[in-house]
Design a protein around this nucleic acid. Structure first.
Lengths: 143, 143
DNA sequence: GTATCTGCAAAACATTTGCAATTCT
DNA sequence: AGAATTGCAAATGTTTTGCAGATAC
């Protein structure tokens, strides 16, 4: 879906929203575009601060509403790697995350899908499995 | 540390706090006792509502302060399995958690320590590894 | 014209902070 | 008395809610 310059055309995004049963308003398109083009696991505030330059009238309420809708329709997932900061990820495939305690950046980590393949643990039915790491990222380790 | 009735005597708790470099005030002892006797991964509110019956003057500020101190001194760890609810766990050994999406209960899951033994992922230095599952617990699955 | 979507303002929560009162030794 | 601890009240920050106006079909 993403080309070499990490840009996605609006038409593709629009079709994606419709396919998922979401009315493709301009705000929703831009929020989806931001999620797709930046795999930085943004907070609501991150998205708001980026989009206020493009849509000066956008409100945080709309961002909250839209992200909630995206999570319900499985276009995004929430990441709660740290207390008091909910982040959003447009990648809904199973994968792990790594958060650097120095720079705060959150990286995607590919994990052997076998490690994710729990049907049950201790007799409980497993529907989701989340894995995250904390430490020093490779950019910070040499500083 | 815990006997058959899941009760711990105050003397033992007091020695534990002192060993960890914490002045054993009555409030701190009771918060530690609650954590140790209830492995229910309580929120600040859970602890407050339980202790207000024992110490009618206790404040949430004290609970926040004390838990922060316990985490610093490695007597407890925070669990952020769901956005907007920080839970505390008196078990600081590496282990996974399972949260039931029906009843909301959080269970401890023993995990082969080999699965926790990452030194590095993708070149990043790993200091902590957290794993949690969501699904339907064995008590809710037959209801 | 009716449904939906947006965004302001207020409300609802959780957590932190400043500070004064209390407790402990 | 002096240092640490506690707890009230206010501040902060994030997310939700109610609702009125705007937009889309």
């Amino acid at each position: 879906m993403i080309n070499a310059e990490n840009r996605i055309d609006m038409k593709t995004l629009q079709e994606y929203l419709i396919k998922k049963g979401i009315n493709p308003s301009f705000q929703r398109l831009k929020i989806l575009e931001y999620l797709m083009e930046n795999n930085t696991h943004p907070t609501v505030d991150n998205i708001y601060n980026a989009l206020i330059n493009i849509i000066p009238t956008i409100s945080k309420t709309t961002i909250y509403n839209t992200l909630k809708l995206f999570v319900e329709k499985n276009l995004a997932q929430t990441i709660t790697i740290d207390e008091n900061e909910v982040r959003y990820d447009g990648n809904v495939e199973p994968h792990a995350h790594f958060k650097c305690i120095k720079c705060g950046k959150v990286y995607d980590i590919k994990i052997d899908s076998a490690n994710f393949d729990y049907n049950e643990v201790d007799g409980h039915k497993v529907l989701e499995c989340h894995i995250y790491f904390k430490g020093i990222c490779k950019n910070c380790i040499n500083m």
